[in-house]
Each structure stands twice: as structure tokens, then as C-alpha cells.
């Protein structure tokens, strides 16, 4: 049969693709993507200023594998981040928590922005008032008939 050979080739190729041990499945790729998403939120506890997803140290390779394993077990990102903070210390957290004393790291800039906003608003209002008070007498003096 003339079409037997191409059909057989296609079938063999498909079987080969599925049986190939190094071919990542869609689920594995998705798991890796989720793992890297979480690792991007965390910091290497040994380096200074290196995120966990980018760190080449063996310690971080093992930590990423641990994230992957926890995801495979059904843990969500929030749980894993909290687990890492508990296991490896607060230095793995990419941002200070919004609780306790460390919430100051969030509050200080917020207070600064609000304070500067209020200051700028008051200054603008005063400038507008001064301008008005300066303009009104000039208009009055211009509108007066000359003696």
C-alpha cells in the first residue's frame, strides 16, 4: 500500500515523542513555570541581592527543587512562601511583611508621600490666595476713573 509507509513513520514519531524520557510533559513545564514564579518572590539566603530563581548556588538549586516538590504535593504559593520564611528565616522574603515592627518599611514611605502631598497642597492653596489678593487690588485700581 502506498500510504502505509508515511503513516507508519508518523505513528513511530508520535510514539517516540511520548516515550522519550527527556521530553517534558505539559504538566512538568507548568510546574516549572509555577516554581520559577514563586522563586522570583524569594531571595537567596546566602547571597546578597540575588533572587532565588536566578541563583546558581547548589543550596538554591535544592531550594527550587523543594518548591517544585511542594507544588507537586498540592501546596499553593502563599503556603510555600510562608514555609520558606519559617524554615530559612525572614531573609528569604523579598519584601518586609505588613505586620509587626517591619510594617514600618511600608508605613514610612506612605507617611512621607501623604505628608508631602498635604504640604504641597497647602503651599499651592496659599500661592493661589496670594495671587488672587494681588490681582484684585490691581483690577480695582485699573477700573477707577482718573481724576
Amino acid at each position: 500500500m502506498p500510504c502505509l509507509r508515511p503513516c507508519l513513520t508518523v505513528v513511530l514519531l508520535l510514539v517516540g515523542t511520548f516515550l522519550h524520557p527527556s521530553a517534558p510533559t505539559l504538566a512538568q513545564t507548568e510546574l516549572d513555570d509555577r516554581m520559577y514564579d514563586i522563586a522570583r518572590e524569594l531571595w537567596c539566603p546566602l547571597c546578597s541581592g540575588v533572587r532565588l530563581d536566578a541563583c546558581e548556588l547548589q543550596a538554591c538549586v535544592q531550594m527550587r527543587a523543594e518548591i517544585r516538590q511542594l507544588l507537586a504535593e498540592g501546596r499553593d504559593a502563599e503556603w510555600i512562601v510562608a514555609y520558606f520564611e519559617g524554615e530559612y528565616g525572614p531573609q528569604v522574603h523579598g519584601q518586609p511583611p505588613l505586620r509587626g515592627f517591619q510594617s514600618l518599611a511600608w508605613l514610612v514611605p506612605a507617611v512621607a508621600v501623604v505628608g508631602l502631598g498635604i504640604g504641597a497642597g497647602l503651599r499651592t492653596r496659599r500661592a493661589v490666595r496670594q495671587r488672587r489678593s494681588a490681582v484684585v487690588p490691581r483690577i480695582r485700581s485699573q477700573s477707577l476713573p482718573k481724576a
Binding site: 515592627f101 514600618l104 508605613l107 514610612v108 507617611v111 512621607a112 508631602l116 504640604g119 497647602l122
Partner: peptide
């Protein structure tokens, strides 16, 4: 207001 805001900021930064 600016002096008060800066003072508050300095106190918070000192605590941190």
C-alpha cells in the same frame, strides 16, 4: 508641617 513630617520620618527611621 514640613518640620513635623520630617521629625516623624526621622523618628520612624531611627526606630527602623
Amino acid at each position: 508641617l514640613v518640620v513635623v513630617a520630617i521629625s516623624v520620618m526621622l523618628v520612624l527611621l531611627a526606630l527602623l
